[in-house]
Design a protein around this nucleic acid. Structure first.
Length: 183
DNA sequence: TATATTTGACCGGG
DNA sequence: CCCGGTCAAATATA
């Protein structure tokens, strides 16, 4: 998949179909919403497992939003974060940055055998993304109040790094130019 | 005691 | 039947 080099500070947007479904790469995983982890899977040919989260208010508010987090293969200590679906619950509260702490002790004690049971997953790296809800409860401010940029501006800026469907996607206007810069 | 996490089972699509 | 996404019982945590 080709990707552009859009970034907001430490957030790189690889692909963004809509405001609700998108993939980001960041050193932080918090977004202000409250998430509940419901699964973790080893992924074929991936060093790190993928963690699955759903909105904490799925039942009380019927919120269908999902989130998947997986650490990147490289040593950048970054995470690929994919958002799926629309939040119908209350929006995030105020911002404060929060860095994920990798719990290598838990990895050794509890999860090593599970990860190893998949022979295609390397176990060289003892760090792992054991993401808990608390890791996801803190905000990475995305400047929700920033002015939105019309889709045609993005169509001018975005080049061949993006596929055609992305370039023609009118929901690009969900992205704020004030908050996104090329690197 | 209530809520969150862990983790193997389960299931559906390719 | 493999892979990845979800369920849910057991377990941990506040």
């Amino acid at each position: 998949m080709g990707y552009g080099k859009l970034s907001t500070c430490n957030i790189h947007i690889f692909f963004r179909k809509t405001i609700d479904s998108r993939i980001e790469v960041s050193g932080t995983v918090g977004d202000g919403y409250s998430w509940r982890k419901y699964g973790q899977k080893g992924i074929l040919n991936s060093k790190f497992p993928r963690c699955y989260f759903r909105c904490t208010h799925k039942h009380v508010q019927g919120c269908k939003a999902l989130k998947q987090v997986q650490q990147l293969e490289d040593d950048s200590n970054m995470f690929e974060i994919r958002y799926i679906g629309h939040h119908t619950c209350a929006p995030p509260n105020t911002s404060s940055h929060h860095r994920v702490v990798l719990d290598s002790k838990k990895f050794k004690n509890r999860h090593y055998s599970q990860i190893c049971s998949n022979p295609s997953i390397s176990t060289n790296n003892q760090n792992d993304a054991f993401l808990k809800q608390e890791d996801l409860c803190y905000n990475v401010s995305l400047a929700n109040d920033a002015q939105l940029t019309p889709a045609w501006v993005w169509n001018e800026i975005i080049t061949d790094d993006f596929d055609e469907s992305f370039k023609s996607d009118q929901t690009l206007s969900d992205i704020s130019f004030d908050d996104v810069m090329f690197s």
